[in-house]
Amino acid sequence: MLVWVLLELVSAAQVPAGHGSLLGSWLRAAGAPVRLGVEGAVLAVRDLAGGVSDFRRIVAEHRRMRLDLERCRAREAALRAEVGMLRSALPLATATRDGMRRIVVVSCRYRDLSRGILEVAGGLRDGLRPDQPVLTGDGVLGRLWRVGASTSWVEVLTGPSAAVAVQTVDGSVHGLAEGDGSGRLRIRYVPRTAQLLVGSRLVTSGADGLYPRGAAVGRVASVRERGGAFLDVEAVPAVDVERVETAVVLTGWRGGESG
């Protein structure tokens, strides 16, 4: 208590002349801690409120940036897929006379492989027309069968009524690949004298006037001799029809041009 009174006296004595009475100085000195405490509390509350406001703004910003990041990642994945597909289709597209300017990328919406049909997004508005060849990076998928305004149906090569003229890569053996609905291709009209080995690659010959020449069709899986004039040849298609999600339609291709 005595120390406190002494401190108060010392403080009051430091008040310069003309700044009020000694009693007033004492009262101010006694109230100073309270005033400082209140001022400190007000400042603390104001800082706290500012901090909370800043925190909320940062959280909102963080959320927005995360959303932007997710959107960018999704877009990157989609672009990567598209670039991959276009890159794999590039050799085929450049092989045609019109090149990359005349292709349309379509995505598969529905397929019924027992009947050999596949619905794709894209139609007359996109420049699609019946009988245009449909390819994937692996090879020929089929041809456009029915084209609507915004959706089209593709007849896949493995379908029961599909056919494509094929040849070996060196062009020594020719035939007609037909689908049978089972997921395989039957190669008709291969002469008995033909030198055809299991594993040989088959490509389009262009003789049918529907498909450009040189696109992969499949690989020979079995060769059997039968009584007739032709060999019984079976092939595995180059395109895994079950997994097709996107394909390329050669809208610039006109039947009869052989690449």
């Binding site: 598969c108 529905y110 997921g183 029809v241 079950e242 997994r243």
Partner: peptide, 15 residues
């Protein structure tokens, strides 16, 4: 039925 024909599902699903 439409979903059964989506790419990625087994080919027999549409049957």
């Amino acid at each position: 039925q439409r979903i059964l024909g989506l790419p990625g599902l087994p080919a027999w699903a549409t049957d």
